[in-house]
Amino acid sequence: MSRYLVDKFLYTVDRDPALVERYRADPVGTVTWWEAERANAILDAHTGEASTWLRFDEAERAALSTHDYVKLFELGAHPFLTLTLFIAMFERDHAEPLGFQREYAARLAHFDLPYPDIAT
Rank of each mutant, 00 (worst) to 15 (best):
P27T: 07
P116H: 04
R24I: 15
A41H: 10
D68S: 04
R24D: 14
R107P: 01
H94N: 14
W33E: 13
H94F: 12
A36R: 08
P79G: 07
T12L: 11
V28Q: 08
Y115S: 13
P17A: 11
D26S: 09
T84M: 12
V28A: 14
A119C: 11
G76E: 07
Y69R: 02
A109K: 08
P116M: 04
L10K: 00
E60F: 01
W33K: 03
Y23E: 07
Y4H: 11
F86L: 08
V28T: 13
W33V: 02
E91F: 04
Y115C: 10
E96S: 15
V31K: 00
H46G: 10
L5K: 01
L54F: 05
F80L: 09
R61P: 01
L85W: 01
H46W: 10
R15P: 00
E58R: 08
T66I: 06
L72Q: 03
A50T: 06
T47H: 13
T84F: 12
E58T: 12
L85Y: 02
I87C: 11
N40W: 01
V6I: 15
A88R: 12
F9Y: 05
G76Q: 05
D14Q: 11
F9D: 01
D44W: 07
P114K: 05
T32E: 12
A88T: 10
R3A: 09
L19R: 03
T52F: 06
P27M: 06
F73N: 06
L10Y: 01
E60M: 06
F86W: 03
D26Y: 06
E21D: 15
D16K: 05
G29H: 04
W34F: 13
L72D: 04
H78W: 06
R102L: 14
Y69I: 05
A36L: 10
E58K: 09
E21W: 07
I87F: 06
I42G: 02
E91D: 12
T120M: 06
A39F: 05
D14N: 14
A119S: 15
H46A: 14
M89D: 08
T84W: 12
M1L: 10
A95G: 03
A59C: 07
V13G: 00
E60I: 02
A36E: 15
H67K: 03
G48V: 06
D14C: 11
T52A: 08
P114M: 07
E35I: 00
R55E: 08
L64P: 00
T84D: 15
A105H: 10
E49M: 09
E60N: 05
L5N: 03
R92S: 15
E74D: 14
I118N: 10
A41I: 14
K71Y: 02
F86Y: 11
F73T: 11
I42H: 02
V20S: 02
